[in-house]
Design a protein around this nucleic acid. Structure first.
Lengths: 147, 147
DNA sequence: GATATTTTAATTGTGCGCAACTTAATTGCC
DNA sequence: GGCAATTAAGTTGCGCACAATTAAAATATC
């Protein structure tokens, strides 16, 4: 395979990966619009619906985002009444993030999102789980490559 | 599967898809930094290296980007001396984008990108092609879902 | 126990991504 | 030909991403 073909292959891969993630976000958008949240905000809420409270650092680790992204985003979410932010008493450096009543309640409306998307995609739950497994394997590989 | 488990599955999928595309871009970043271009600019150049000239509309179709994203990006690339932009004579609405000498030359430096990444990933060319096929199939499915 | 190092958020600045809107050219239709 | 509808870019405004820097608290080292 010559270098011209290699570059063409790279180009197709770059296009596909880029477009895929944006298509997925585009699928969620109308559903998330109904909850008046964005996709990254949905990710934060998904974490908080699981564990009620988190720190900025922990959110960053789970979502692969840094404070430069999270701080303004969490401030917007606070302004929209979804979360509370306050400094930890034990360690004044860390900021704790928790759900408000409104943020908690939003979970009820969110249950329909995976249901609608799975229905729309025509995938079975097992097929979806399999896709997840492959994605997570890929993510693990990618993460290790950075060494 | 109850709705709680469905939401958990959705959450893992959302995290994985989001993180994957950002990890990939992160892999390219150091290589693209050397060329002083960003990932989306690399995508534009990949198109122009293939066909020398394109329109904003055509670029948007290939990269799934609209003029609100492309116009300022192409202006930055023009300011960096990578591309020329000019209105078509036949149809004054359309803007043609072509490579400058500098943009053309950059291709030589870009050949090493797919080589380095394939080497780093440990994948064979065949495995990479297979991954591309699966990605393109997924992209096609996703695109059809919007109906 | 004072000082250097590390850790955690916040801030600043640049570049997308996209919705909504505007402007200007072209096409359709009568 | 004249006018409405369509099409292609551009503009505006907001929300991420992320690099680089700063500020403040905690920890390590001596």
């Amino acid at each position: 395979m010559n270098k011209e073909d290699m570059l063409r292959l790279d180009s197709q891969l770059c296009f596909s990966i880029y477009a895929c993630s944006r298509e997925v976000i585009g699928l969620y958008r109308p559903l998330l619009d109904a909850l008046e949240i964005t996709y990254p905000q949905y990710l934060v809420l998904l974490v908080l619906w699981e564990q009620k409270q988190s720190t900025v650092k922990e959110l960053g680790k789970k979502l692969y985002l840094d404070s430069g992204t999270l701080t303004p985003m969490l401030k917007r979410m606070e302004a929209n009444g979804l979360v509370n932010r306050f400094r930890s008493k034990e360690d004044e450096r860390t900021v704790l993030v928790s759900l408000t009543e409104k943020g908690e309640t939003l979970k009820e409306k969110a249950y329909c999102i995976p249901e609608e998307l799975i229905a729309k995609s025509g995938l079975t739950v097992e097929e979806t789980k399999d896709m997840l497994r492959r994605l997570q394997a890929l993510l693990g590989q990618l993460h290790n490559l950075k060494d």
